[in-house]
Design a protein around this nucleic acid. Structure first.
Length: 306
DNA sequence: AAGACGAAAGTGGTTGA
DNA sequence: TCAACAACTTTCGTCTT
């Protein structure tokens, strides 16, 4: 399949597109016109169709995405068979190799920077290693697909981290990510949505219960209150009070109610602050909880005790 | 005086024509 | 692409402890 585009180097219109590898190559001078030439399929195999070795061989030591080049490098057309080719073809190979080198080092440079930033943010948020690893993988794929173009590296890093947190059920709020990375909340949300859509990453809506432990500990609430909150959460889920609502709001309200019923009084303001929402939202959720779950009796009982 | 409550208007994002 | 819409926020006045 031929492109109508022109080669920027020699102006030839003789461009060849190799769909398998995502390359567009100028047939006259060997310039790689499109830069998406890094393999991004899920399997790590050898892609040399030149007969020097069986293709599709599986290779690979265990690799890690938090290393900027994943411990692997790529090279174009190797050694032995080079002198079987005409000089023109050989030239082509040389040029390809040169461009491959330039492009892959560009990507590597980017990754190196980005992964440093990723580690910084992730350690700031005290995220587990597995999440960091996942985020690095997401980011790597995003770079290879050219999704970073037009977006700041930092925002894509944050988006990847946010996605990774969600998938590992250790959700952080957008506000927390925003604070850790210095990127605007809506920007993170935007890139998060963009890259998950483009990379086909499916993510379950986050579960309010995942927030409870963290909120409770920063409010210094006892473990009994915490499990009470989870209990309330389950009832609320059963009553279908949770769908369509912000998970942080629900978690915060459940925690607030749990604290009341156990006499560990916290103000709405305090709870709202750690959950990153407003008092009003807590009040709304809280009211719904009282209506549906008949918790007011328990609260009154608690009041009489004092 | 501080916290809780609720009404009203505003914001940003989603959805469906 | 635009308007309607739901969830949430902001702001502010009033009531309760």
């Amino acid at each position: 399949m031929y492109y109508i585009k022109k080669c920027p180097e020699c102006n030839s219109i003789n461009l060849f597109s190799n769909k398998d590898k995502g390359e567009v190559i100028c047939k006259d001078c060997g310039l790689v016109v499109e830069d998406k030439m890094v393999e991004f399929s899920q399997e790590w195999r050898e892609f040399e169709g030149d007969g020097s070795a069986p293709t599709g061989r599986r290779t690979g030591a265990p690799m890690t995405y938090t290393q900027y080049d994943q411990g692997l490098g790529t090279e174009v057309g190797q050694k032995a068979d080079l002198f079987k080719l005409s000089s023109k073809e050989r030239n082509t190979i040389f040029r390809l190799r040169k461009w491959q080198y330039r492009i892959s080092t560009a990507i590597e440079r980017n990754l190196k920077l980005a992964l440093a930033e990723l580690k910084r943010v992730s350690s700031f948020l005290k995220l587990p290693k597995s999440v960091e690893e996942e985020a690095a993988m997401v980011y790597t794929q995003a770079v290879q697909r050219g999704l970073v173009r037009g977006r700041s590296m930092e925002s894509v890093v944050s988006g990847a981290l946010y996605a990774a947190c969600r998938r590992h059920e250790v959700p952080r709020t957008l506000d927390e990510l925003s604070e850790a990375s210095g990127i605007e909340k809506k920007e993170i949300g935007r890139t998060y949505r963009f890259i998950t859509r483009e990379l086909g990453i499916s993510i379950m809506p986050s579960n309010p219960a995942d927030y409870i432990a963290r909120f409770a500990s920063s409010l210094k609430l006892g473990p009994e209150t915490q499990s009470k909150a989870v209990e309330i959460l389950e009832e609320a889920q059963h009553e279908e009070l949770t769908s369509g609502r912000g998970p942080t709001g629900i978690a915060a309200a459940a925690l607030y109610v749990a604290a009341l019923t156990r006499g560990e009084k916290k103000t709405q303001r305090e709870v709202a602050d750690v959950a990153g929402i407003t008092e009003v939202t807590i009040r709304n959720r809280y009211k719904e909880l009282l209506d549906k779950l008949k918790l007011d009796k328990q609260i009154k009982k608690q009041k009489k005790k004092r």
